[in-house]
Design a protein around this nucleic acid. Structure first.
Lengths: 207, 207
DNA sequence: TGACACAATACGTACGAACGTATTAGTTAA
DNA sequence: TTAACTAATACGTTCGTACGTATTGTGTCA
């Protein structure tokens, strides 16, 4: 084998730079410099910036999945508490960066979905994959009555993750935890609560 | 007065181009070309792209405020129905663009908040101004019992707008109305509903 | 009334930097 | 020796911005 590859270092650096400055905002040279790698190594390992970004996004998602696992598979907590735990863990991570960075998945959704069909398609897949364990957890909560069964678990999971992205978006402008805490307080006091009345209608179907 | 100014045409074009391609994605030349204006006119009228973007954002917000007014001041509807009407009006607008464009305020929040302190500060102000009429409407709904009073109207308004931004974000990736309809269905069946039980605790305070 | 200075704007062009990408020579280790 | 990779440089384009000049309407004064 030849010299030790800089591929991993480039992806790590790309993760940091793109997380902070977005897809368009992060230049190839910024990334190479952050990785202490020459520009040629980038060309050697990646066909294009777009392909590179897909791999970086994959990395971010892999990290996110770890957090999901950590929170949602903690069977010492009730299903609902597990959901909350996930949001708390993410909150801690966002705080550690001073609330300046949000979620790369959300960032890419807004910024690169119009530019790159490749990224958009992958993002759609990521959302589906992301949602699954949450839907499972919500289904469990519905089975125990901890959450109302008025909506499908998949719809509630989508709602949770999408709205959470919205809270993160607000956080980025406000630069503090208030939008996150507000979301958690309201969501877990309303949507993710036992059914209020006993005469709930049959399960709603989101059209 | 000299020749007819191209300032307005440039702002209109900037609105269209930046709405579609984002702040970084939209080049000065794209905008000038869209306005059928020479590049020099841009320089003549605007100190910088950043300053230009603030004015474009102002334009978008002015349009948004019109929709807010149209929906929230329709006293033929109940307060809660007015909130829903706003979301429906926005849904129609998003549909007319094929769900490819979202909300410029949200887009700029993610994309330009890290780059431009000027834009970030204005965005924070815009959100506060945007929230006010919703908070008033929610307060009215709480007074009539149409919505529970467990949370402050301002917090609920923030929650509504932030989560709605999250739904729009998802819409941009999915390219259809499902995330929007899902949000409306769930939100108005849970958060924006009368208090479920009669023994609600005293009003929660979001920390 | 008419010449003229003025301000505001249009307009074409140019600058320097940064962009993403490509090329080529050199280095390393199996 | 050869494949994999580093390393440096170069290419063509586009970026945001700046400058110099032309053009146009307006107010002023002889």
């Amino acid at each position: 084998m030849p010299k030790e590859s800089l591929r991993e270092k480039l992806l790590d650096a790309g993760f940091r730079v793109m997380y902070g400055k977005g897809y368009l905002g992060a230049g190839i040279r910024d990334i190479a410099a952050e990785a202490n790698a020459p520009l040629g190594s980038f060309t050697n390992h990646f066909r294009s910036k777009e392909d590179f970004a897909v791999e970086v996004l994959e990395r971010f998602f892999a990290e996110t999945k770890k957090v999901v696992e950590q929170a949602l598979q903690d069977t010492s907590l009730s299903p609902c508490a597990r959901l909350r735990r996930y949001l708390d863990l993410i909150t801690n991570r966002l705080e550690s960066r001073g609330f300046t960075c949000g979620c790369m998945i959300g960032d890419f959704s807004l910024e690169s979905a119009p530019h790159s069909e490749k990224l958009r398609a992958r993002l759609a897949g990521i959302f589906a994959e992301w949602r699954a364990p949450f839907a499972a957890c919500i289904a469990e909560a519905q089975a125990t009555g901890e959450i109302g069964s008025a909506f499908e678990p998949e719809d509630l999971a989508e709602f949770l993750l999408a709205s959470w992205e919205g809270a993160i978006l607000r956080m980025k402008v406000e630069r503090n935890a208030a939008p996150l805490e507000r979301f958690k307080a309201i969501a877990f006091a309303t949507v993710f609560q036992p059914p209020a009345t006993s005469h709930r209608p049959t399960r709603n179907r989101v059209q």
